[in-house]
Write a protein that binds this DNA or RNA. Sequence first.
DNA 1: AAATGGCGAGAGCGGTGCTCTCGTTCGGCT
DNA 2: AGCCGAACGAGAGCACCGCTCTCGCCATTT
Lengths: 225, 225
Amino acid sequence: MPSARERVRAELTAEITDAARRQLAEVGAAALSLRAVAREVGMVSSAVYRYFPSRDDLLTRLIIDGYDDLGAAAEAVDDPTAGPADRWLAVCRAVRSWALGHPHEYALLYGSPVPGYQAPKDTVPAASRVGIVLGRILGEAARAGALADGSGERDADLVSDDAVAVLGGEHPALDETVRVRALLAWSALFGTISFELFGHFVGSVEDADRYFDRAMGDLARLIGF
Amino acid sequence: MPSARERVRAELTAEITDAARRQLAEVGAAALSLRAVAREVGMVSSAVYRYFPSRDDLLTRLIIDGYDDLGAAAEAVDDPTAGPADRWLAVCRAVRSWALGHPHEYALLYGSPVPGYQAPKDTVPAASRVGIVLGRILGEAARAGALADGSGERDADLVSDDAVAVLGGEHPALDETVRVRALLAWSALFGTISFELFGHFVGSVEDADRYFDRAMGDLARLIGF
DNA sequence: AAATGGCGAGAGCGGTGCTCTCGTTCGGCT
DNA sequence: AGCCGAACGAGAGCACCGCTCTCGCCATTT
């Protein structure tokens, strides 16, 4: 059982991360100041260092929480009984609407890496969640016969076994073409969202909502389902 | 004719931007310090403000230069006499290799927007150059009969007229499907490069070089050329 | 009851962006 | 030719930043 000391420590840690998340949502990661966070929770800045060894560690915490929040949103919206095309579009929409609702957090996750490349190890499980959701959808679509009209060549060791496992393990239909297409769909989804959020579509796309649906629908159809 | 004063001013401005570009390449945009730039050119920090009203303006200068450099690289490698598939892949490779050679500049251009969304007006012409190169390739491919096996529906006002102009003006073959596919290809290219550069492919892609060629080749084939 | 260790506060270091005020110097106008 | 204003570089200074260290306080553990 947690001692009283551990409990209040956990509470204060949560209070700090909450304040940091609030500040992140307001001013963005670049302007997130540990001192301002300390002020908001009524501490002096040096006291915060009892809980986070550095500002980057605080940001890493926010990154992991962000990945988990986004991953949960993607998982929540995926209905395994629906068809792959519907599932795909639903998850794409969920990811986009999360991004639009949390622009600074999205930028922290999928924009430029902030510090000198922080420890990715801790973030990997959380970061994988939405990829796993998409991989499951695409993998099942592939096993159902879709996505398989490619050249079918096996370009060994192009996509790692970990990524293949996400698609649902070894299966004759999961040749290299399917693997590449899954990764392509994944990065195209986030490329589209990033372009919209970071302003690269300004002047090109008139109606972002409708363009997104069209683009993701076309993408799914092109890939084969 | 430029007066002597204007000349030395232009020289000093160039010296400052050069030093800033060097520092950007070394430590990245987030850690780029106007004071350090001033030190490098042998000035005191306040003197730099005679040439750039703020740090963000200096960054904006670097952004425009970066877009121009990347755009020039894309234009240089495009051979109008080649086939669309070859041209597409060549430009994709050129963009990627520029990004790999200038990771911090790429992050500045296509990562999270650094300040509170700086003036995009000045950056637009430079930022459009690689999009124009890609648009020209895809537009010519479409007029040659490719990219046209879509539904052909005309979802008016989805893609702006500016973007259509990039594809080569009005043409019966340039229906909404082609427009969406062109934008999709564009954002998929940069989504792929961003994922590679920002580490989202770690654990999924084994051989980045070969994956990129495969992905961009598959993408072109899927889109229709 | 005493010792240990976690904790918050404060001072301080070097760094940042940016502003303001000084002399100086240079160029265009009378 | 001479002057006057504009441009310029330097310096000091402000508020803020991340981070470190030290010092008392207090609770938990022994």
